[in-house]
Design a protein around this nucleic acid. Structure first.
Lengths: 203, 203
DNA sequence: ACCTGAACACCGTTCAAGT
DNA sequence: ACCTGAACACCGTTCAAGT
């Protein structure tokens, strides 16, 4: 063997990312290993280290694609809707649907702690910011006289909230007898928060 | 060697749990290994498997202790306070303080997915329920005519929310320039939700 | 230049063998 | 009865050697 060049560097990269997505999707983050990825794409482990820094790097790249897909799905969810409040509800339901459709891949985004330095690259942070920007955009029309800073804070509080409900559900820690559906809990959070935020009950 | 009996089974159990707490607290969940735990308590790996089912079991036992400490701290936080709303704020701040004081140990509770069956033992679930019960108890006096079901739902939505904010902060995914402090975000969430929940702005 | 194969230092888990 | 030590089947990462 050696010197095959069956695939370009970019092709190998793409194959590896897809392989990780399939592996994690089916077996979860814990079931992932560099050797399994290599086997899945028909190369040796060593080859993976020519294309990626290490396994952490590979995971960050996959998480980036997951965030892109999530952002796209959330954008599509608000596309047609006219009512301001309904747009936020739809955004929330879209987030939940994403987490439920591929829980393992979604979980990996938040399970993964950065290797040493503790800081994710700027281009990655930007993808996270883009998600919050969508929430802020939906929040703006109903925010009245709130400052941009207050809207940014509300978006983070609200989305942290929706996210936390999903996490507790996925890890089986809602601790009830199952009466609480995730969409219902998120709706409760959104409605009550927005009532408070906009003061809509006292016009 | 062999047949030392320096320690009873329960003593070994206690030593192992403490060793895990110290390891995870310092190096995080990823830095944990059965071999390191064994070395820390001066026994062989094999001994660990006489006391615990496997590493997953050991983690669940430690998580149980973490939940107990969290429940205790939350109980103490509301002890003296008279004002209903302030009690809930204090409960939230107490949760955040716990997560910030030992992020790795707190994270492990929610990072850990159950081994095969996907179901945590009942005595463990009970500890989670006890936490929600504390929130419900604080919620009750300000809930007006809400049903117990509605209060249970509110407790889960609210605490999922506080939890999500902590997770995003700890994993560095709040995506801002750091203006948003976790206590501020949680306060925003609690105040606005409670305003909506109680309809307090239109008496 | 590209890729391999073997090596190194680690894992979790099991279990015959020692005292 | 209690604990060990070695074994098994895995890891992530590196890098001299092959084509």
């Amino acid at each position: 063997m050696a010197r095959r060049s069956d695939h370009s560097r970019d092709e190998i990269r793409e194959m590896a990312l897809s392989a990780v997505e399939e592996l994690v999707s089916k077996k979860g983050y814990e079931g992932l290993s560099a050797r399994k990825v290599a086997a899945a794409i028909g190369y040796t482990v060593g080859t993976l280290y020519l294309v990626f820094e290490n396994l952490d790097d590979l995971v960050v790249q996959v998480n980036a694609r997951t965030l892109d897909r999530l952002n796209l799905q959330m954008m599509e969810a608000v596309g047609e809707i006219g009512d301001d409040r309904q747009r936020l509800m739809s955004l929330g339901q879209s987030y939940i649907r994403f987490a439920e459709e591929d829980p393992h891949l979604w979980e990996m985004v938040f399970k993964h702690r950065v290797p040493r330095n503790g800081q994710l690259p700027a281009w990655y942070q930007e993808k996270v910011s883009r998600m919050f920007a969508q929430v802020e955009r939906c929040l703006k029309p109903i925010a009245g006289h709130k400052t941009p800073g207050e809207i940014a804070q509300a978006a983070r509080a609200l989305w942290g909230g929706v996210h936390g409900i999903c996490i507790l559900a996925v890890t089986g820690k809602l601790g009830g007898v199952g009466v609480e559906s995730v969409p219902d809990l998120a709706e409760s959070l959104l409605i009550n928060y927005l009532d408070g935020f906009t003061g809509s009950r006292n016009p």
